[in-house]
Design a protein around this nucleic acid. Structure first.
Lengths: 131, 131
DNA sequence: TTAAAATCAGTAATGATTATCGAGTTCTTT
DNA sequence: AAAGAACTCGATAATCATTACTGATTTTAA
């Protein structure tokens, strides 16, 4: 079994992605780590997130205001995107019954992943009348 | 009832978006129209698509290779995105029963729209061994 | 007719993401 | 331990989709 050989910075980036449920952008990860790792560069964050995407250990959830948003939790679950504040919030996944593939297999498609996104206004924005 | 006052170019852009099921990017729409409307500019395509988005008459389906993909069909339906060729293909929508909101309403969320995206390999790419 | 509003081409600006490059650093094999 | 391959990274430049700006032209409404 191959040992995963994480560098300090790569590991830190991955930890941030796994420890938060804010589904952050690359810059947010960078801003989180910069104080404790002053010589971190934004390119390194992008480079390592690209590696995680290739590995399949991190997923792109959606794109909010031009920024990709990532999730270190690759268990199947859905997301709610607030059209007002841009927050991306975890949602219990709908039951993943086989008919959810919409007969794609029978039509010759290979389904590798499935995303469910809800868009709307989150409770905080409703409460603060920001919408 | 307010008359919708479409300019020639705005109308042409909307027609292209409604007449195709390729879920095109802005540039694709531009390339389609440029031969018949030689003085069309790409900025105009973006500007009018932004209007359609605000109106709700056109939707952003997903982002493939950095390009937003649009759909003039706003009836609820799902989409399959080919990870190989980037095509976006219509899929019969899953039955839209109320439990698909995952209890979001009860939690204070206002759900304005819901997207289901499948990612994988389309039949053509499988056949051509492009994956 | 006339002034405000809408539309647009052309171009510049923005901003997220990616590529490049040279300099360390770590691993491997001996 | 030494040599060299492979890895990692900061800094910076480049790319590219999208947006903003500007001045001209057209349409609308009174």
């Amino acid at each position: 079994m191959a040992k995963r050989n994480f560098s300090l910075k790569r590991n830190a980036i991955y930890q941030v992605l796994c420890a938060t449920d804010t589904h952050p952008s690359a810059r947010w990860v960078y801003d989180q780590l910069k104080p404790s790792i002053p010589d971190l560069s934004l390119g390194t964050v992008y480079r390592n997130i690209a590696l995680f995407k290739d590995e399949g250990t991190v997923r792109v959830i959606c794109n909010v205001n031009g920024e990709e948003r990532y999730d270190g939790n690759v268990e199947p679950h859905s997301h709610f995107v607030c059209n007002c504040c841009g927050r991306v919030i975890d949602v219990e996944d709908e039951s993943m019954s086989s008919d959810f593939t919409s007969g794609l297999f029978e039509k010759g498609f290979t389904v590798e992943s499935r995303y469910v996104l809800y868009y709307g206004i989150c409770p905080e924005c409703k409460e603060n009348n920001l919408h």
